[in-house]
Design a protein around this nucleic acid. Structure first.
Length: 277
DNA sequence: CATTTCACCTGGTGGC
DNA sequence: TGCCACCAGGTGAAAT
């Protein structure tokens, strides 16, 4: 489901609704897949802590938690949620019907409930105490903050396709399949161009296109391609702005040439053979 | 090391 | 209706 704009939208929505609230009880499902930290550890550690903020880092949702001063948990901590392809982080009432594939439920002091639902189980839940471990940091650069020179340096000497490079989370954190295709279209670049063969001018066009696309997508609440909804159950609207993604065979909105679909880095890739060089 | 391929999962869709 | 192939917003391990 989620790339940077969707994760940003969800993190903001969850933050608004849980900030200051205290986790009083937890429930974790029996599947082991979604848990980077064991369910038992998460259950023990989360209870009694309060949500300070909820923020996006790359495609991760980082819930910053207070210490639990009534118990033995004297250090602050983080609960890190990665949504994978189909994960959702919901804030509900306890009475709301529990959907299939619900893997975690946190009951809050206010009576609200935070739920993690993920049919395909590509998502991950992780707990980090901040006594020894550092706070979570994405390995890659933040696409909305990186500047011209640093952006260019990311691709120096990289022989892979520019599309593959954009998807590599250790280079840039947060870009996924939709926004890679959409930014390459807006920059007029073919997805299979070798990253190290792009000129400084082309790379700057790409950086600006990426910023533009990500910012407008955040403004529209992300892209709802299937059933994605934010923490308040609201769909995003950036899918209406897609110019190439999942428009195979349809006319390019600029030149009417049919949009092509190819496979790059194992992912379906859409581009206009006329507008992108 | 850098790069590519594939397995990990469930569910929806479209063809026959 | 059923069966099957193929597709899906991600990523990390294994192979090259």
């Amino acid at each position: 489901m989620p790339e940077l704009p969707e994760v940003e939208t969800i993190a903001r929505g969850v933050c608004e609704r849980v900030r200051g609230d205290v986790i009083v009880e937890t429930w974790f499902g029996s599947h082991k897949e979604p848990f980077k930290t064991s369910a038992r550890t998460q259950a023990e550690e989360l209870e009694g802590r309060a949500f300070e903020t909820v923020e996006r880092v790359g495609k991760h949702i980082v819930c910053r938690l207070s210490a639990n001063l009534d118990g033995p948990k004297k250090e602050r901590a983080e609960w890190i949620v990665h949504l994978g392809m189909t994960g959702r982080l919901l804030v509900t009432t306890p009475e709301a019907p529990v959907e299939m594939h619900t893997h975690a439920r946190l009951t809050l002091k206010s009576g609200k409930e935070v739920r993690f639902v993920d049919p395909r189980r590509f998502g991950r839940l992780e707990f980090r105490g901040l006594d020894k471990a550092k706070g979570f940091e994405a390995p890659g650069a933040e696409p909305l903050a990186i500047e011209t020179e640093a952006f260019r340096a990311l691709f120096h000497g990289r022989k892979l396709a520019i599309k593959a490079a954009l998807l590599n989370q250790t280079l840039l954190a947060g870009v996924g399949n939709i926004y890679a295709d959409e930014s390459l279209f807006r920059a007029g670049l073919r997805p299979r161009r070798r990253a190290d063969r792009l000129t400084a001018l082309e790379l700057e066009r790409l950086r600006l296109a990426l910023v533009e696309v990500l910012r407008s997508a955040i403004r529209l609440g992300g892209s709802s391609v299937s059933d994605y909804v934010d923490a308040n159950g609201v769909r995003g609207f950036f899918q209406l702005e897609h110019r190439v993604y999942q428009r195979t065979g349809e006319p390019c909105l600029v030149c009417r040439t049919p949009i092509k679909r190819i496979v790059v880095a194992g992912r379906s890739t859409h581009y206009c053979p006329q507008c992108q060089r």
